[in-house]
């Protein structure tokens, strides 16, 4: 049972209040009608499955009904940060490798 900080409610809540919604920062191609089948298939079907740091989208389903992003370590399950929709993560695989994070 994860303990997740909702950036909109400003509180930690129990995992049972949330729904996982897959990988974060998946961008829908801007002009779907004119993108290639490959680009469209990549958007539809291909997701990362990293061992370690991952950016995920979660929904505070039985709470404020807002979607937000979570940076989570898929090995330790530690949540390193949560951030609002439209924001970028402060902690990334790159920043971690560069020692940017404690």
């Amino acid at each position: 049972m994860l303990h997740i900080y909702c950036p909109y409610c400003g509180e930690h809540r129990e995992e049972s209040e949330f729904r996982p919604k897959g990988q974060a920062h998946i961008l829908r191609p801007k002009d779907p009608d004119n993108c290639s089948d490959e680009v469209w298939a990549d958007y539809l079907f291909f997701r990362d499955n990293p061992r370690g740091l991952h950016h995920e989208m979660w929904l505070h389903a039985t709470g404020c009904r807002k979607y937000f992003n979570v940076t989570r370590d898929t090995v330790s399950y530690e949540i390193l940060e949560t951030y609002k929709m439209g924001e970028q993560p402060k902690i990334t695989a790159q920043s971690r490798a560069a020692g940017g994070e404690k």
Partner: peptide, 12 residues
């Protein structure tokens, strides 16, 4: 949830 997803993430 689906409507909110598209509104909150794609077309705010």
């Amino acid at each position: 949830d689906w409507l909110e997803l598209w509104h909150q993430t794609e077309w705010p």
